[in-house]
């Protein structure tokens, strides 16, 4: 049988490759180019700079603070949202009266734009007229207003909580898909053998939704690591950069201070960091599956 050159696998993936190259590789190349160049405030290249932009980022003390907070931010939200979403998904998977309504309520925050949610929270967290303070006062839990966004010790944990809240709907969706792929007869058989609910969860549910758990971890890590609106809308990384994560720091560097070279260098580093963590995780997860 002679094979037509048009069915060569490389030819077949060519259109897809070109599309993704146009969307991903070309901007990446541009970014790399700018990061190695002297650029002016308006992104016009003025000469070759070597690794100067990278060194400038490494010499900025604010960079390390932002890096550390990015790790706390990412792990906090990913672990927090998975820990919250799993029980919610299990409850929503059960058949009960009003399940449709309950699912809609859980999914609703997803339908609202992230920026809008963040701005509503900025109002809710306002010290003088915020809903959160009046609710806590009404419940008798506090007797003076808490200035939530005035210092990072209260602002950053609140931002992580908001992050968890907006990540839960997406994670629940993934888990619901996973749960519905588990055949009911497995549970029936286990129950006949006398398994208790905890055993059902640990021996059947958890192992079988593991691929879905992996997807949730990888996708959420990527989204959260690069998530900008919550922190920007509530504190803009302040006060005194104490709630900055890498993306907000990057935005200030690029568009406020006009250091597009350094901002590009930082973007490349962030891309590499994210790629590195994702690859490690994928390799670990796949090895686990093979065993």
């Amino acid at each position: 049988m002679t094979r037509s050159p048009f069915t060569n696998p490389y030819v077949l993936i060519l259109p897809g490759f070109l599309l993704s190259a146009f969307i991903i590789l070309w901007p990446l190349f541009q970014l790399g180019n700018i990061s190695l160049s002297e650029v002016n405030r308006f992104g016009q290249i003025r000469g070759f700079a070597g690794f100067e932009n990278y060194l400038a980022v490494f010499n900025d003390p604010d960079f390390y603070g932002a890096l550390w907070r990015t790790l706390i931010w990412t792990f906090g939200i990913v672990i927090g949202s998975i820990g919250t979403a799993l029980p919610i998904a299990i409850v929503l998977h059960e058949d009960f009266y009003g399940r449709g309504l309950a699912r809609v309520i859980i999914m609703l925050p997803w339908a609202v734009s992230l920026t809008m949610t963040a701005i509503v929270w900025r109002w809710a967290l306002s010290g003088e007229s915020g809903m959160l303070n009046s609710a806590l006062m009404g419940l008798g839990l506090i007797d003076t207003n808490i200035q939530w966004l005035a210092q990072s010790s209260t602002a950053f944990p609140m931002q992580i909580l908001i992050g968890i809240l907006v990540t839960v709907p997406f994670t629940v969706t993934i888990f619901l898909g996973g749960l519905s792929s588990i055949p009911d007869d497995l549970y029936e058989a286990a129950r006949l053998e006398g398994a208790n609910p905890f055993q059902l969860f640990a021996r059947i549910t958890l192992p079988l939704i593991r691929p879905f758990l992996n997807i949730a971890i990888v996708l959420n890590t990527i989204y959260v690591f690069n998530s900008f609106p919550i922190i920007w809308a509530t504190t803009q990384g302040g006060p005194a950069n104490s709630t900055d994560i890498l993306v907000t720091y990057l935005y200030k560097l690029g568009f406020r201070f006009g250091k597009l070279g350094e901002a590009s260098a930082l973007s490349i580093m962030m891309f590499a960091l994210l790629l590195f963590f994702t690859l490690i995780y994928v390799v670990l997860a796949m090895r686990g599956e093979k065993e």
Partner: peptide, 21 residues
């Protein structure tokens, strides 16, 4: 001053002023 100065933008302070606080 109003409490929580570092959580008050210019607009926040203006709003307090408009409310007579």
């Amino acid at each position: 001053t109003q409490p929580g100065v570092t959580s008050n933008t210019r607009e926040d302070v203006q709003n307090l002023f408009k409310r007579g606080k």
